[in-house]
Design a protein around this nucleic acid. Sequence first.
RNA 1: GCCGGAGUGGCGAAAUGGCAGACGCGCCGGAUUCAAAAUCCGGUAGGGGUAAUUCCCUGUGUGGGUUCGAGUCCCACCUCCGGUACCA
Length: 891
Amino acid sequence: MPRYDFRSIESRWQQYWEENQTFQAADCVAEKEKLYVLDMFPYPSGEGLHVGHPEGYTATDIVCRHARMQGKNVLHPMGWDAFGLPAEEFARQKNIHPAIKTEENITTFRRQLKMLGFSYDWSRELSTTDPDYYRWTQWIFLQIHDTWYDAACEWTGPDGVTRTGRGRPIAELPIPADVSAEGTAAVRRYQDRHRLAYLSEAPVNWCQELGTVLANEEVIDGRSERGGHPVERLNLKQWMLRITAYGDRLGDELENLGWPESIKYMQRNWIGRSTGAEVDFAVATDQLDHAAWMQQRNESGFPAEQDAGTIRVYTTRPDTLYGVTYMVLAPEHPLVDQLTTADQQAAVDQYRREASLKSDLDRTDLSHSKTGVFTGGYAFNPVNGEKVPVWIADYVLISYGTGAIMAVPGHDERDHEFATAFQIPIRQVVAAAAADAEPVDISAAAWTEHGVAVNSGVWDGTPTAACKAGITTALSEQGVAREAVNYRLRDWLFSRQRYWGEPFPIWHELDDDGQPTGLMRAEPIESLPVPHPHVEDFQPTGTPEPMLSKASEEWLYKTDTDGVRLKRETNSMPQWAGSCWYYLRFCDNKNSQQFIDPEKEKYWLPVDLYIGGAEHAVLHLLYARFWHKVLFDRGLVSHPEPFRRLVNQGMILGENGEKMSKSRGNVVNPEEVVEQRGADSLRLYEMFMGPLEQVKPWQTSGVEGVYRFLGRVWRLIIDDRAAENVIDAAVTEDAATAEQLRMLHRTIKAVSEDVQRLSFNTAISRMMEYTNFLYEQPSRSRSLLEPLVLLLSPFAPHISEELWNALGHTHTLAYEAWPAWDESLLVESTVEIPVQVSGKLRGRITVAADATAEDMQAAAQADPAVQKHLEGRTIIKVIAVPGKMINFVAR
RNA sequence: GCCGGAGUGGCGAAAUGGCAGACGCGCCGGAUUCAAAAUCCGGUAGGGGUAAUUCCCUGUGUGGGUUCGAGUCCCACCUCCGGUACCA
């Protein structure tokens, strides 16, 4: 019994915390400083917890327990990201309903997390699959659906910052007169085209085997990330979210976030903003007189939409227009047919067929060399009237820019490779700016640096930057170009064909023949949630027809009050949807009137610390920020960013230094560790392994080490030979000595500062050192032990509660004041400092702590060891840092 | 290719430009024990020297540099890990 019996201790305290609701957070406590600390909530897989989960979760738990002891009001919730494909795949194989399997998995996860003693406020638990939760996921979708982006709107938000561009209610969208003249149906279609959630026919990654479309990032080398099934490209009507409208703000507002620079960088890269120009090239035909076309453009100006008979390209290097020797259209480009001549038709058709079979990822695989086909058609270069051949090639993507490029092989690597392969002329139009630079040679490779224009008519000698601006302005005035901004970021493909996802709160109007008219109605907010329909058959439909189309007629159809027949949208939302806003719902998870009470939102948000794996660096974090900004624009949240500080925990590798995986047989099961050494040992070990953010291998013997440490702390206080928890005889009520106090306060300071910095491994080392020190002491004053228990409690809460109790306290230590250190007790009267001679350590002297440089020098020169090294040498210089070190520079 | 991050004992690691290797693992030795486990105490970068020591030399991926002084700052390079990749 008085041995350190973690089994009984841990279950007893977990029960105590639960019964006393120790960690329930009160909302809107004005007199306390709030702290919202969030873990990335897990997908409750059938495998249960792995050791990576407790890593981040322990880190946040330490921060929270520490903060409570500092008197802060702490929000520390947990929930489940429970929609998703694995449960559906399981259902398909075992014919068990995903809802049942999901509930089972959640039960396991909850039990495992409780077993680790995390101080979550479990009353705020939520699952994305709860109707009460997805009701509001659907509601937020309707807010996004009800919003258009007014790029010109200048406004000042509740944060006091003035921005340009705002998501506004669709009712405020100005309707052009010619549209309203066509009637209400035309107006509705016009609005639908401008919503932030819109339907679009687009080539998507369709996986027959999984029975769903996949996001680009879910496709690897032409196969599904999950299961490795083949993926093909299909044109399907899909829901898209207009995240590109927020591209600039998502990029710019990263600036002040306390996030790792690498993550910010990755997000900026993902957004990939570039600036340049759109330029129109007139398609050469027998009838076209280029000079006349230019004249006409000069009068009409640059058309907003690309007009017939012109190829519009996007370029970031308008300064290289004189170097254009050919153009390329994406194979899917609508002008291909028009440009292709009769004798090239067959080759073009075949090339397009081949390209259509490849996914974007196949096409962007750099390993294959450039392919393409000449269309037979030509277009006029607006800067010099040259006729340039137009090709099609799959290195140009229809989904980026205008789907067409002007090719400048002299100054673009891809164009150079292509031109070389097809013997197209390469022309130099940029030269090195510096007079003494080596001449640029573009025969073997493109030269992509900035310099000065050459072979570029009136622009010769103009530096690249000025030339870009100059040509763009000049061509704009002639009506053949305009400045343009492009993003690598695409609109977010938001629909899936899966069963186990949120239904869309959208109805499609049907005509008398039961066919969709293309007009839609939103589900009225008061009838949310659109319930997740029950089905019995989880086999994929085998077609792009979504799984939800297997639902009952009653779910699928209704007649609206005006007599219009309606059919439900049968696509479902992707797994990202639920995780886009869960951090908001934690603040107010039981609210049946609103997705969050504005008062609670103002109080708790933003999240002060968000810890999770780096695998979510881009997608989850970008999507959540996007939703948050839409809600912000619509006045539904008061902060522009959801997560103030972000930390990525490093992956834990197997004992062999490889990634943990079943196939490698190196998976460590946390439940077994808890079984053998207890939750406190697991928590402590995961924090002791190394810096939180670092990738580090598991060492089972390391768990043993921290377990021994906990045993040592236990025996500092408890007499482990007694039958009951009896305080050890060595524990006294005496006053501590000055040295003991110095060690204590040094430890308090170090641990406090380390916790602040999330440097948990060094904090634990400090407590170990202090414990080792106490073992050397002939007697142990209680005043030296109680603070240690408090310092240890965020790391190993169960043993700490037990020891606190044994020391005579009747209440939990969760809200005891965090120990304070007294700086005056830290100073020692004397210090030992190193003495160097010419930079080499030659001795040590002990001097008064406040010794001056002169005192130190005198003491050092009196030291025999130092004297030996100074003998016969001339001291050139003495560097003495009081209290630190002294160095004689001698010759 | 590009962009990050990291290279320190047998291992995980520590170190505001100021005594490299704290703390832990492992290993070695001792105490305790009939014996073992557990526990407690001591040692442990490498090489050399000494009867012994608070002795000497070398050492933080490689090569340069700045500095009285560099694991730490600067330049070049090597290796590993992560991310990303025809975005015009």
